[in-house]
Nucleic acid binder design. Structure first.
Length: 403
RNA sequence: GGGUAGGUAGCGAAGUGGUUAAACGCAACAGACUGUAAAUCUGUCGCCCUCGGGCUUCGGAGGUUCGAAUCCUUCCCUACCCA
């Protein structure tokens, strides 16, 4: 294995990063790796409770990919053990804790999606129940003795929740320590994470030292904002662009981001070369419309293909500019007893509307059309003699096939 | 164990016996507009039938009352203070 020179490696590694702590230690680790011809162990923890990956996750995964391409070893740690305990933080009703089997399954699905970003070379996936599951209560007590309550409360979210008199479950304090044990177990040289992970990553450093290991360097990436431009990208806020989204969805969602986010998306979520980045800033200012379309194409190309990118752009124009129908529409078999069916019944039975009241409202507001004809009467009877295309709102389509 | 403050629709938050299906904000949804699924504006936002209603909601259970989210009993949950 031949590693690239230090400067080249650092140029790649530093793109888009928020912090490297401490940077000089990373330099030393890389120098040593070049000299001894040994790959660095780069760790990324993944949460198996939410296995749907989106562009936000991709930021850190892409960084991991860059380490892989530089010849280093990526270790993905699936938190199956921690997932099993379940995390009731926040107000959400006791989140059901997953069984080991479920976390494993989610881990697999995480891995499948992550493979769209990662290389299949220089990679290892490990479950943390391998070592956490073997710890005795005495081991846990020993571990917890190495960290104090005040130190824990330094973490911002604990701190604010504590001050707002919101509940903090005791086991939540154990998560950073468990994560730190992962670093001890695999002897990571570098751990990646979002800036929101900084605290946990730093705990890893001190616990590694406590266990007589060399401390890992931590590398944090900025949090990618969601399509709303305000909150961080997340599935629960529905402001995400999923790695497994269809080209059409990816394209549309990308166009809907606020203009001021474009640069960050180019920087953190695409392969646009470093040399083009400065130029892009002026492009964004001068021609936001076309630049955003390019961004959308870049993203679709990354997860699907160039052809898909071009097709999704064409389709976008067809649906939203020409207000036409997409060429691929979801289909559903639908059978009725009579030859026709009431529109409200049709909408609820096809799950296009959750209730008849909602369906009625959609009709009143002019949001329903069938075969391009607006339905304005909730009493309409729809003749079910041939396939019909139902349109709900601007972008929900369903082809109903009688039978 | 004792005390105090709380638990209201997806979230935040009003409401302390009777036009309260429950103000307001956010989110969501529809329409208009737009380079956009952005922003803005308008409307909607428990369920069922209808334009007049019917039914089910305010942590859980029970009770008082012609009538309760609002009063009482009891249980569960959260935070804080004291031990």
């Amino acid at each position: 294995m031949k590693f690239a020179p230090l400067n080249e490696q650092m140029d790649v590694i530093k793109r888009g990063v928020s912090e490297i702590i401490p940077e000089d230690e990373l330099v030393r680790k890389i120098e040593k790796s070049i000299k001894t011809n040994k790959q660095l162990i780069v760790k990324l923890g993944c949460d198996p409770s939410r296995p749907d990956l989106h562009l936000g996750h991709s930021v850190v995964l892409r960084k991991l990919r860059q380490f892989q391409d530089l010849g280093h070893l990526a270790i993905l740690i699936v938190g199956d053990f921690t997932g099993m305990i379940g995390d009731p933080s926040g107000k959400s009703k006791t989140r059901p804790s997953l069984s080991l089997e479920e976390t494993r399954k989610n881990g697999e699905s995480y891995f499948d999606q992550a493979k769209k970003v990662l290389s299949d070379k220089n990679i290892k996936m490990i479950y943390n129940s391998d070592w956490l599951g073997k710890m005795s209560f005495a081991d846990v007590i020993k571990l917890t003795s190495k960290y104090t309550v005040s130190q824990m409360l330094e973490r911002e979210d604990f701190h604010t929740r504590f001050n707002k008199e919101e509940p903090i479950s005791l086991h939540e304090f154990l998560y950073p320590l468990a994560q730190a044990m992962d670093s001890v177990a695999i002897e990571s040289d570098v751990e990646l994470g979002g800036t929101d992970q900084k605290f946990n990553l730093l705990v890893g450093r001190s616990i590694q030292r406590e266990f007589g290991k060399e401390a890992q360097v931590i590398l944090t990436m900025p949090i990618l904002p969601g399509t709303d431009g305000i909150e961080k990208m997340s599935k629960s806020l529905d402001n995400y662009i999923g790695i497994s989204d269809s080209p059409r969805e990816m394209f549309g969602k990308t166009l809907s981001i606020p203009d001021k986010l474009m640069y960050d998306f180019f920087l953190l979520a695409t392969n646009v070369p470093n040399s083009e980045l400065t130029e892009l800033k002026t492009e964004i200012a001068n021609n936001p419309r076309d630049t955003k379309r390019r961004l959308a194409r870049e993203i679709v190309t990354l997860y699907h293909s160039q052809e898909a990118a071009i097709a999704s752009e064409e389709e976008f124009d067809r649906i939203f500019v020409k207000k036409d129908v997409p060429d691929v529409i979801e289909e559903m078999q639908y059978s009725t007893t009579g030859s026709s069916v009431n529109i409200l019944q049709l909408l609820t039975e096809t799950n296009l509307a959750p209730s008849k009241g909602e369906a009625r409202r959609l009709i009143e507001q002019g949001g329903i059309s069938i075969n391009n004809e607006k339905i304005s009467d909730a009493k309409s009877e729809i003749l079910m003699n041939e396939p019909k295309i139902i349109k709900v709102g601007k972008r929900k389509f369903l082809k109903v096939i009688p039978g």
